[in-house]
């Protein structure tokens, strides 16, 4: 299993979520986060924004689906400008459903 953590523009969140849902990945966890990237934030005239608001979407999927999910997020979250965000994929050893106690996703 893979955990996919995508830092995306907050305004793109709904689009990404709907796309994932349409592709059969309805489960996700989201949280608002603040961060900056390679460009050290954002410079608008004299004002420097160091911490920019992003949405972190976290989802765990089977190994085979990871590429597909990354592709969907990338397609939907892309605007072509800096600040589109990052996607991180990390391995997950096990996933448990608390209700049943089973080790299945």
């Amino acid at each position: 299993m893979k955990m996919i953590r995508a830092f995306i523009r907050p305004e793109k969140e709904q689009e990404v979520v709907l796309a994932l849902e349409g592709a059969g990945f309805p489960s996700l966890t989201k949280m608002p986060v603040f961060g900056r990237g390679k460009q050290k934030g954002l410079q608008v005239g004299p004002v420097h924004y160091d911490e920019l608001p992003k949405t972190l979407i976290m989802t765990v999927v089977d190994n085979d689906d990871a590429d597909k999910v990354v592709k969907i997020i990338q397609d939907k979250a892309k605007t072509g400008f800096i600040g589109d965000g990052k996607i991180f994929v990390s391995p997950v050893d096990a996933a448990y459903t608390v209700r049943t106690g089973e080790a299945v996703l």
Partner: peptide, 23 residues
């Protein structure tokens, strides 16, 4: 720890949550 978390959090209703173990 996973077993204990499951034991404490189980209500047998949907929405009890998920546990992920990452290296």
């Amino acid at each position: 720890i996973v077993k204990s978390i499951i034991k404490v959090n189980q209500t047998s209703q949907h929405g009890d949550g998920k546990i992920f173990v990452l290296p």
